[in-house]
Amino acid sequence: MMNTSLKIGRNICAAALLGLTVAAGGAAAHDGATGVVKERMDAMKTMGGAMKQLAAMMKGQSPFDAMAATQAGMTIQGQAEGLLKLFPKGSDDMSSRAKPEVWTKWGEFEAATAALNKASAALAGADMGAGKSDIMALFAGVGKSCKGCHEQFRKPKDK
């Protein structure tokens, strides 16, 4: 009698523990990224923020501002310069969406980073007097380099 209730008790404890670890495991799948994986996700998100600001101008949701646009370009270029360092060999744990090709095709990955560097530098250095359509063409160029790298080197998102 004693024995069974103990067992049940232990099972409940085990289940609770399991529940906890499962919950923790779920969180680790993305938000729980740590170390260099988290660093590069943050770098990507910073670039995403700058792109979002530019997209709002392009769509006419916020007024066009050449100064703010070139500054967004600088933000992106700042991140692009340090990007390669954030992809050390072996940093493809469970929380990461980086494909193994990052490391098996490192030369192409470097080229994709260089393309981002170049495109963002062009936006960052754009002539302040340039019109909306010129600046937006440079913005589109940056977007192309994001997409180009994600096409080859990032696993798709689920749901």
Partner: peptide, 22 residues
């Protein structure tokens, strides 16, 4: 906007096969 440019509302861009589709 995402269909024509591949850019997502949070400033991210699509990748993998969807980038080709775009």
């Amino acid at each position: 906007f995402a269909l024509k440019t591949g850019m997502l509302p949070d400033g991210d861009s699509v990748g993998s096969e969807m980038a080709t589709v775009v």
